[in-house]
Simulated assay, not measured.
Amino acid sequence: MDAGNGIMWESGSPLYQEALRRLHVYARHELTVVLEGETGTGKELFAQALHEKSGRSRGPLIPVNMAGIPSTLFESLFFGHRKGSFTGAQETRDGFFGSADGGTLFLDEFNSMDPDLQPKLLRVLETRHYLSVGEFRPRKTDARVVLATNVSLDRLRETGRLREDLYFRLVAHRIRIPPLRERLMDLPDLVSAQVRRIAAELGREGVSVPDSSMRALLSYGWPGNVRELSEKLRSAVLHSPDGLLSIPLLFPDAMKEECVPYSVAKEKFDFDYFVEMDRRSGGDLSLGRSLSGLSETTYRRKLRRIRRPPPLEDQKKHPGMP
Score class of each variant (00 low, 15 high):
Tyr26Asn: 02
Leu285Pro: 04
Pro178Asp: 06
Ile198Glu: 11
Arg289Thr: 15
Asp101Gly: 08
Leu162Pro: 04
His318Tyr: 15
Leu23Arg: 05
Ser112Gly: 04
Gly134His: 03
Leu122Lys: 09
Gly12Tyr: 00
Arg56Trp: 09
Arg289Gly: 11
Asn65His: 13
Gln194Ala: 12
Ala143Glu: 08
Leu77Ala: 09
Arg139Ile: 01
Leu131Ala: 03
Glu201Gly: 03
Asp154Thr: 12
Arg176Ile: 12
Ala148Met: 01
Arg279Asp: 10
Trp222Ser: 00
Pro223Trp: 04
Gly288Pro: 02
Leu35Thr: 07
Ile247Phe: 01
Arg181Pro: 00
Asp272Pro: 00
Gly134Pro: 07
Gly320Trp: 04
Ala47Tyr: 05
Pro210Asp: 01
Asp272Asn: 07
Phe74Leu: 09
Gly288Ser: 06
Tyr130Cys: 02
Phe79His: 01
Val124Phe: 07
Leu77Lys: 07
Ser295Gly: 15
Val191Met: 10
Pro311Ala: 11
Glu75Cys: 01
Ile247Leu: 14
Val171Leu: 07
Glu91Thr: 14
Pro261Val: 06
Ser219Pro: 06
Glu10Ile: 13
Leu180Cys: 08
Pro115Thr: 04
Pro179His: 03
Ser76His: 09
Gly203Pro: 11
Leu50Pro: 09
Val151Ser: 08
Ser132Arg: 11
Glu38Lys: 14
Leu312His: 06
Arg183His: 11
Pro311Asn: 15
Ala193Phe: 07
Ser85Tyr: 04
His29Glu: 12
Asp211Arg: 14
Lys232Ile: 04
Leu291Cys: 10
Glu75Val: 01
Phe74Ala: 05
Arg169Ile: 02
Arg82Ala: 08
Leu287Arg: 14
His173Tyr: 12
Ile198Leu: 15
Ile306Ala: 04
Val209Asp: 00
Gly98Val: 03
Arg123Leu: 03
His239Ala: 06
Ser286Ile: 13
Glu126Phe: 05
Arg279Tyr: 14
Pro252Cys: 06
Glu91Cys: 05
Asn111Arg: 03
Asp211Ile: 09
Ala100Asp: 02
Val145Glu: 10
Gln17Glu: 12
Val171Glu: 11
Pro322His: 13
Arg144Ala: 05
Leu294Gly: 10
Arg163Val: 04
Thr92Trp: 00
Tyr273Ala: 14
Arg307Ala: 14
Gly320Ser: 12
Leu20Lys: 07
Leu285His: 13
Val145Gln: 09
Phe136Arg: 08
Ala172Pro: 00
Asp242Met: 03
His239Lys: 02
Gly68Gln: 05
Leu31Gln: 15
His239Val: 08
His24Gln: 13
Val34Leu: 09
Pro188Gly: 14
Asp270Arg: 09
Ser132Trp: 01
Ala265Met: 07
Arg21Cys: 01
Arg227Phe: 13
Tyr167Met: 10
Ser219Val: 05
Glu52Ala: 15
Gly102Gln: 02
Ile62Ala: 01
Glu276Cys: 08
Met66Arg: 02
Gly84Arg: 09
Asp278Thr: 00
Glu52Asn: 15
Glu182Leu: 05
Ser240Cys: 07
Ser71Cys: 01
Gly59Leu: 02
Ala49Arg: 14
Leu184Ser: 06
